[in-house]
């Protein structure tokens, strides 16, 4: 039953991604000023949304680990696996954002990169979570989970400050498409539909990878605990 459910989810995800691609490339109308280059928007923005969501999952996992580690070891281990999976998959999606952004910027602005608030924030966010992954790789032993959880909280705390500081510094990124003001929002219904389908497709895909990564980490934890137990038995 479980296998069937996973297989079904994978099939739906693949179908959604094909449908999203079709919508973005063939159905959505040509944008008036940016033309074809605008279509990268259907990949850039959903990836950014998914990346931010996964970093939030990572933060919740970090907080969960620190609160459960004393009295509920199993919950703590699960939280830690979520924190790691969220950070890792989030970094992948954030990388997609950082690659698709300059591709679009080169066409629309004539430059690859600018030190604008949102670009810099995303880059610093990416750097923070890469350093989080480095810590997890470099640290050994059981304390790595605690140390990583602490760094995860620090990193998340830094994000709003980075954003504010850069906003005061300079801003060039287009104003928010949604909730930015009276003129914001996508006016064309087919464009909005293409955008919605792509958000859904990439979210489904991201959740699939996140779930797989979580399962792998849980398995890894299980083997580590088993090995520790066997080593103890040998001593005894």
């Amino acid at each position: 039953m479980k296998k069937f459910a996973i297989g079904f989810y994978v099939a739906v995800t693949i179908a959604l991604m094909i449908w999203g691609y079709y919508q973005a490339i063939y159905v959505a109308p040509d944008e008036q000023t940016m033309h074809e280059a605008q279509r990268i928007f259907y990949y850039h923005v959903p990836s950014a949304m998914v990346a931010f969501l996964f970093f939030a999952i990572s933060l919740i996992g970090s907080i969960g680990f620190l609160s459960f580690r004393r009295n509920r070891p199993d919950w703590a281990q699960a939280s830690d696996a979520w924190a790691l999976a969220g950070a890792e998959v989030g970094v992948v999606f954030c990388t997609v954002v950082l690659i698709t952004g300059p591709l679009w910027g080169r066409r629309a602005w004539g430059i690859w990169w600018t030190w604008d608030a949102r670009l810099t924030t995303t880059l610093v966010l990416w750097l923070i979570y890469v350093s989080y992954l480095l810590l997890r790789r470099f640290a050994a032993g059981p304390q790595v989970q605690t140390l990583a959880a602490v760094l995860g909280i620090f990193g998340a705390l830094d994000v709003p400050i980075v954003y504010m500081s850069n906003r005061w510094w300079r801003t060039q990124h287009p104003a928010p498409v949604f909730g930015g003001g009276d003129d914001s929002g996508i006016k064309d219904p087919t464009m909005l539909a293409a955008f919605g389908w792509n958000v859904l497709a990439w979210l489904a895909w991201g959740l699939l990878i996140l779930g797989l990564r979580y399962a792998v980490e849980r398995q890894h934890q299980k083997y580590a605990a088993q090995e520790a137990q066997e080593a103890l038995n040998e001593v005894a």
Binding site: V124, I128, L134, F138, A139, A140, D158, N166, W169
Partner: peptide, 26 residues
């Protein structure tokens, strides 16, 4: 935090600098 890990001295700049960026900018 980094002194508790395997690579000790190497790790500090790698985790400090990203967090320190807004303060450095200011």
């Amino acid at each position: 935090l980094s002194i508790r890990t395997r690579n000790r001295e190497l790790l500090l700049p790698l985790i400090l600098f990203p967090i320190f960026m807004p303060a450095l900018l200011a």
